[in-house]
Write a protein that binds this DNA or RNA. Structure first.
Lengths: 146, 146
DNA sequence: CCTTGACCTCAAGTGAACTTGAGATCCTAG
DNA sequence: CTAGGATCTCAAGTTCACTTGAGGTCAAGG
């Protein structure tokens, strides 16, 4: 019946450390009210926010990106199913793109790595759009497919 | 005709910064010989090693994991196509798993985020095996599906 | 009442993967 | 022969996403 949850309860239910919750709050990803004691009390929908954060991280978004996304939720009222669905819909292209990227990688895995292309600049897998190469290293195409 | 490449040439062809190459060498991911000047000279197959490093990173491996994988390559001779294929084959299950993970996420995106499951512990998407939850936060299931 | 465990703040530490800076050397073109 | 770009080493800095530690408060059970 509890309307609000302690940090420990949230941590347990969400499977994240209390320190991470304090961190998320400091970063503006979640919010809490304070009991008279000064202890945090989290509204129940924080669990959904955390679920969202975790999913978004899996899709490769930074906490900054996630903060921006969450900022589009109504803060006057508790976000309802529709609000969440709208937000989630926004990830679909991102997820699809990431899947496509990995499928490209899978299909070319032996072909490309084992192939004769000595230059990464002409390698379809590492350089899907036949360009880029000057954008620096890192898991760029999976994480940031722009 | 050049048998060996300067760090600048490798950096340009591979699309990574020279500092990253020095770092990779210090980490034991690539090797070089030295010219009389003290400058690095990289064997041509370093380009393939770098390609491999980048791909493996995209699949979510740490440089430590990648070092271990590269360590299985023959160091007495230049690795041939077959060596690389064997190594690449090892990634397939990993890539497949990552794809499967993302597909699960896609399929449940609106369903799960927008659904009524308040507890992450019973959410199929965030907790594919109906367990874990105590393993801590982060993109664990995509990156490290153990 | 007292202890114990959950909670608080704030500063500092961690690890991964690099980058940046300082100060010095090397090599190539004019 | 000299200027300028490429390279060298080594230490320190950066970003992200948290965790850890110190020092102190709060709340429930015996």
């Amino acid at each position: 019946m509890a309307e609000e949850l302690t940090i420990g309860a949230v941590a347990e239910r969400a499977g994240v450390a209390p320190s991470a919750l304090r961190f998320y709050e400091a970063e503006g990803l979640i919010t809490s009210v304070r009991a008279d004691s000064g202890h945090r009390r989290f509204p129940r929908d924080v669990l959904r926010r955390i679920a969202f954060i975790r999913v978004a991280q899996q899709v490769g978004l930074s906490l900054g990106d996630i903060r921006s996304a969450l900022a589009t939720l109504p803060d006057a009222r508790t976000p309802d199913k529709h609000d969440w669905e709208k937000l989630s819909e926004g990830w679909r292209p991102r997820v699809e793109e990431q899947i496509a990227q990995l499928e490209r990688m899978r299909d070319r895995l032996t072909g490309c790595i084992g192939c004769g292309c000595l230059s990464l600049q002409v390698c379809k897998m590492l350089n899907p759009g036949d360009e880029a190469a000057a954008q620096g290293p890192g898991p760029r195409y999976v994480i940031d497919p722009d």
